[in-house]
Every structure is written in structure tokens, then in C-alpha cells.
């Protein structure tokens, strides 16, 4: 059998991403607040269809879901990332309160470039979203592996130093979790 027919066959029979399926059916059960068999069956069918549509084949969403692989190490790093994230979120808010309630808002905003080591789309999405919620920074755009970040109070324009200050806390765990 040639590689081509093999991949077509695989597309036809492929189930899609199990991660997406579990996520969907869990969401369904939580929203319905019930584990009644009828609801479970309807939920399973819906989840199957959506999983098949969005994570089988060769569309970009399928590529994206394929890049997410569950493993104990991945879950551990994801939880560690969540912990770091919550600490950073609280710190960002305290800084923000300082600016907001200051007698005079004394900031020097600016846009800086930050390079990232992350290569997977999911990892970059998580990084960009985390950056938006941490001390005075907001991702404006992305070109390749460069993020353009609006920084509320620019402390340095040195690329290495900005990377350490803005994306440093998250990158380690996200790299281990998503690549």
C-alpha cells in the first residue's frame, strides 16, 4: 500500500484528538449538571461529530490539536504554569492598583520586541495570553517568533533583559508542556 492511500485511509477512519473529545464531553456534563444516560449519549454523539470536524484530517485546527499531547509530565508542567500564572496575575494587579491610585500616573509606555523559544501554536497562544495578564504588558502583534509587546512602564529595551522580565516566568513550563 502506498503512503498516499495509507494516509487517506487514516483520515477516513481517524477519530480526531482524544483531548478535544474529553474536553467537550466534560464541558457538556458540567453545563447540564447531570450524568443521566440519555444526556451522556447525546453529548457523546455531539462531541464525536465536533471532534471529527475540527481535529481529523489536515486542516490547521487538526494540526493544532495534534500538537497537544497529554502525558503526566505535560500535566505537571501545565499545573506549574497555572501556579506561576496566578502569582504573576496577582502581582500585575497590585502594580496596576499602584498606577491607578497614584496621585499622578507616572509611566513610560512603549512597544518592545521579545523573541520566544516556543514553537507550537498552542504554546505561543498560551504565552501571548499570559503576557496580556501580567505586569503591564500586552501583545500587539507577532512575526515569526518575535512578539511585539506594549509595555506600560518600559524599563529596558535590551532584548534579552525584556525577554527575561516579560516572558521568562512562563516560558520554561510552557515549553515543557506544549513545545
Amino acid at each position: 500500500m502506498s503512503d498516499n492511500t495509507k494516509s487517506t485511509l487514516k483520515d477516513l477512519t481517524s477519530f480526531g484528538s482524544p483531548v478535544l473529545f474529553v474536553f467537550l464531553i466534560a464541558t457538556w456534563c458540567i453545563i447540564n449538571d447531570s450524568l443521566a444516560p440519555v444526556l451522556l449519549i447525546v453529548g457523546a454523539i455531539l462531541s464525536l461529530v465536533i471532534t471529527r470536524l475540527f481535529s481529523a484530517g489536515s486542516s490547521w485546527t487538526a494540526e493544532l490539536w495534534r500538537s497537544v499531547r497529554l502525558s503526566p509530565a505535560m500535566l505537571r508542567h501545565f499545573l506549574a504554569y497555572l501556579g506561576v500564572f496566578i502569582v504573576e496575575l496577582v502581582r500585575a494587579n497590585i502594580t496596576m492598583l499602584g498606577y491607578v491610585y497614584a496621585r499622578r500616573i507616572d509611566i513610560r509606555p512603549g512597544v518592545v520586541r521579545v523573541g520566544t523559544r516556543l514553537s507550537s501554536p498552542v504554546g505561543r497562544l498560551a504565552l501571548a495570553n499570559s503576557v496580556a495578564l501580567t505586569p503591564g504588558s500586552l501583545v500587539l502583534a507577532r512575526e515569526g517568533d518575535t512578539l511585539y509587546i506594549h509595555w506600560l512602564d518600559v524599563k529596558t529595551t535590551d532584548p534579552d533583559e525584556t525577554a527575561r522580565l516579560i516572558v521568562g516566568p512562563f516560558e520554561k513550563h510552557l515549553e515543557a508542556a506544549f513545545g
Binding site: 513610560r108 509606555p109 512603549g110 512597544v111 518592545v112 502583534a141 511585539y148 529595551t157
Partner: peptide, 8 residues
């Protein structure tokens, strides 16, 4: 008060 704008 904005300093550098690398994106611009």
C-alpha cells in the same frame, strides 16, 4: 510619554 515603538 511613550518611548520606543518597535512595531511602528
Amino acid at each position: 510619554s511613550t518611548g520606543a515603538d518597535a512595531l511602528r
